[in-house]
């Protein structure tokens, strides 16, 4: 084989390989989106009966499903705000100051990340029932905040590894007090890390099933609702909601990425 042909073959192979990877990643998503336009009305909603947008209409009549989605969004937003605030202060504090037991706290941060979710779920349930906190939205928010904090801390810590402390000194040198320095310098410079941590916390909260299952009480989140309905086959209105979430996510990603790109120019 000539060298030129060999190169051509290599190129062809890599194109096929890439296509297979993307197919593997995106085929399941395509199935969901396609199925949300399926006109079928009989279980298990798998056979294609023609195109229809009926399910999107039905989605807005399914109050239980919409309510669960509302719960999910509420819990995600509140727990993200809490985890981001606590995580940011923790990361900055642990970076800046030396104190006793720092290494212990540091090591403990990894525990919520590495222990199986089911263990965390059971322990949170035990904690909440022993302290008589009624299970519901409050316990869900607390649980989600708990497992999100380490991810926020790790994200900000990654940002801090390239952080030059002397910019804070420069700010103070130029006449800004400590609080002003934190809001003018520290926070904006760490913002990409904080934002990344918040997005991660938000995502983790939205699709959490196991821990939510143990701590939800009567409050149903969207993933729990999906789990429940799966016993009778995924109905296309859930597919429709998934497709809408997907579109929302894509728009969000496009906006943030283009923001990052224009900043780097």
């Amino acid at each position: 084989m000539t060298r030129k042909n060999k190169k051509r073959l290599q190129k062809g192979f890599s194109i096929v390989y890439c296509c297979l990877i993307y197919l593997f990643l995106f085929l399941p998503i395509t199935v969901i989106v396609t199925n949300s336009f399926n006109a079928t009305t009989s279980k298990p909603y798998m056979t294609w009966k023609g195109f229809s947008t009926d399910w999107y209409g039905k989605l807005f009549d399914n109050t239980a499903l919409l309510e669960s989605f509302g719960n999910t969004m509420f819990i995600a937003i509140v727990s993200t705000l809490l985890a981001t605030a606590i995580g940011t202060l923790a990361a900055v504090g642990m970076y800046k100051y030396k104190f006793k037991g720092k290494s212990v706290i540091d090591a403990l941060l990894y525990i919520p990340v590495v222990i199986p979710e089911i263990v965390l779920g059971i322990s949170l349930l035990t904690l909440f029932s022993n302290t008589n906190i009624p299970r519901g939205t409050l316990t869900l928010v607390l649980a989600h905040t708990t497992f999100s904090i380490p991810f926020v801390v790790f994200n900000i810590r990654a940002r801090l590894s390239g952080y030059d402390k002397s910019i804070e000194e420069a700010s103070m040198d130029l006449g800004a007090g400590r609080v002003k320095t934190f809001f003018n310098i520290t926070l904006p410079v760490l913002a990409p890390g904080i934002f990344g941590g918040a997005v991660l916390a938000f995502t983790l909260s939205i699709d959490d099933v196991i821990i939510s299952y143990f701590t939800n009480g009567q409050t149903k989140t969207f993933p729990l609702k999906v789990m429940e309905s799966i016993k009778s086959g995924v109905s296309p209105d859930i597919n429709a909601l998934s497709a809408l979430i997907l579109i929302g996510t894509i728009i969000f990603v496009v906006i943030t990425q283009s923001g990052v790109l224009s900043r780097n120019k």
Partner: peptide, 16 residues
């Protein structure tokens, strides 16, 4: 530091 009438040029520049 923010009350002193001296200013510093840092080795690492420390630009924001």
């Amino acid at each position: 530091p923010y009350e002193r009438n001296v200013n510093t040029v840092f080795q690492s520049y420390a630009l924001f």
